Simulated scan of single mutants.
Amino acid sequence: MPKAELCYFPGSPYARMARVLIAEWSLPITPVEWSFPPLDDLFRLNPLGQVPALVEGDKALFPTFLILERLWDVAGRPDDGYRPEDERQILLTTLQAGDAMVAAFYQDWCGLRPVATNHIGYDLGARHLRRFAETLDWLEDHASAGRLRPGVTLPGVAAACLLLWSEARGGPDWGGRERLWSLVRSLEDRPSFQATVPQVWSPG
């Protein structure tokens, strides 16, 4: 493959997913740290202004879902890492639920509160957090049925990075989900996770 770099912020749970897989599979991809808040250069690389972005030669790949599948491809498509026919929905739903959680956090951190009449009938932040919680219950069911497998898999790494990020940022308690808890804790102790722990941060 051409020279490849992964652009990341140290605190991004999405970039952490890719960094973990690069380490686990010993991929010839160099993680490159970008400054935060993002500069305009990031929008020229990725119109979403987000990390991760995977740069191979003169091409940039994003969003996270496509990057994770690309890393699996570069690794030789190991069956124990991803089974697209069974796990693509689990992976994509996990990533979308993570987006909802992050949106709720950033809404709070930015000090955003209702300033006009609520025309949709629900609190947006609370709705985002419910989407995340409902997805965790759904993942617990999948883990109990053996559809969310233990070990280094794309869906498992994604879930673990999001939940560990939530813990580090003072997010909602996600305990009580025995299978999901076991999966995350087993991954947390791996060298790839220990080497990518996000920096400590709290609002204010």
Rank of each mutant, 00 (worst) to 15 (best):
Y14N: 14
L154G: 05
P52G: 10
A126P: 00
G151A: 13
A116Y: 04
I120E: 11
A23G: 10
R70A: 11
S192C: 11
R177K: 04
L124G: 01
Y8N: 08
T94N: 06
Q107A: 15
G156M: 05
G57I: 02
L136G: 02
G121E: 09
V200Q: 15
P31R: 06
R169Y: 04
P203D: 06
G76D: 01
V55N: 10
G98W: 03
F62D: 07
E85S: 05
V74G: 08
Y122V: 05
A100C: 14
A158Y: 00
G121R: 14
W181P: 00
Y106V: 15
R19Y: 02
W25S: 05
L6K: 13
R131T: 02
F132L: 13
L61D: 09
G204V: 03
E85L: 09
A195L: 13
D86F: 03
E33S: 13
Q107D: 08
L54V: 00
G151S: 11
P28I: 00
L187S: 04
G146I: 03
A160I: 04
F43R: 11
P198H: 08
Q96P: 00
P63D: 15
P203L: 09
L148Q: 04
V197E: 10
A195T: 04
D123L: 08
K3S: 15
N46I: 02
V74Y: 07
E24A: 10
V32E: 13
D108Y: 08
P38H: 11
L91K: 03
R113C: 07
Y106H: 14
T117F: 10
K59P: 00
S12C: 14
